[in-house]
Design a protein around this nucleic acid. Sequence first.
DNA 1: CGACAACCGGACAAGTTCTGTCCGGTTAAG
DNA 2: CTTAACCGGACAGAACTTGTCCGGTTGTCG
Lengths: 211, 211
Amino acid sequence: MSQPSSAVDRLLVDESGRRPRADARRNLERLVEAARIAVAEVGVGVSAHAIADRAGVGVGTFYRRIPSLQVLLETVLDEILDEIANVADRALEDPDPWHGLCVFAAAYVRLRAESCGVSEALGGACGDALAQRLTELRGRIRRLVERAQAAGAMRTDIIWQDVPFLLAAAATGEHTLGMQASDKQWERNLHIILDGLRPTPPSTLPGAAPA
Amino acid sequence: MSQPSSAVDRLLVDESGRRPRADARRNLERLVEAARIAVAEVGVGVSAHAIADRAGVGVGTFYRRIPSLQVLLETVLDEILDEIANVADRALEDPDPWHGLCVFAAAYVRLRAESCGVSEALGGACGDALAQRLTELRGRIRRLVERAQAAGAMRTDIIWQDVPFLLAAAATGEHTLGMQASDKQWERNLHIILDGLRPTPPSTLPGAAPA
DNA sequence: CGACAACCGGACAAGTTCTGTCCGGTTAAG
DNA sequence: CTTAACCGGACAGAACTTGTCCGGTTGTCG
């Protein structure tokens, strides 16, 4: 938010090594921050004009430093995916496997619930650009789940591939049947889902395992 | 699918009481069926041209009998919402309240998972057009949940408003982290969620109740 | 303080995609 | 066979989109 924002720096190191003017940097920071908010509220389909408007600058200013809309969106999303990966790494070091899984799950679902664009990106809406990140994250979730199962803290009739789908599920649904979800509906959803993951399986799971 | 389709009839009873030509009726049936499939695959954002193409007719034919794209979409969705309401009514007559809830939940989640457009409509994407239906459905779900709780078959720290969100959640997520969900992933999700709804609450639920 | 390069904003071009209309050619039905 | 109903798709026009360009402004440095 208020730190230098590596995204801004990444976008700033172009052309001759001259230091950019102060207003140029300020506007770029505004644009990146506006992009973050817009992506969260509107999703990856947000337009360049919409971001420029939010930042309080013209589109000309947008395209002066930003090569293309797509580059900006990928930069912003890549940063968030990095953050998620870090949370997963820390969770893997938790001495209590189940607690580690819960901590990661809460962070993951929160990020998805609070940013429409992050959900879309994790769902694969950004094509190959973020595919590498997604693969890495998948591996970390797999390890988190299998570690919890090995410790006897989780049902073993559930396979690790179910977990990403369940976490994605917990984060969705801002509106249903005309009801507006509270800010924390995702916490309630996640809580119930995690309860459903605990041992003592009440019955066998139907359907084939996902590919 | 192959029955006369009340939607077709509803669209056909216009202008002078003359019986329409056979080809006219055939094309309208094709259009309605194409709309159903297109709404399921693409969602309520599908275009009139896309539906006409799927039906194998021109757009002129589309607009000859159909007043507007919106009318067609609402007609198709209204029919499905009717079906859901009927399932709920039957579930309310089940002598076992928990079994009734499970049967309804499975049908509801299946319909949502199999039709992108139904999910959007239940999420409120169609504005006021379907608001009445949504309200009715809400009441039925409330009764199903409270009946199950009164019978002691379901945790009482969950409120009925949680259930529509949980069911919506179970149905979402065709892709996550680069993985393609199996046809029946929704069954696995729902199964785990229903397990989480059973009595013996492991802990208290965080967050405020939704409005 | 003055000069000037860097910067700014938004009108604009060019493209896409949408809904809905219109009309010349075709076909079902009495 | 006649004729009204029907068909298809070109078309109009509106509402978006991304990205460019240029006249006016401003930060920065000698």
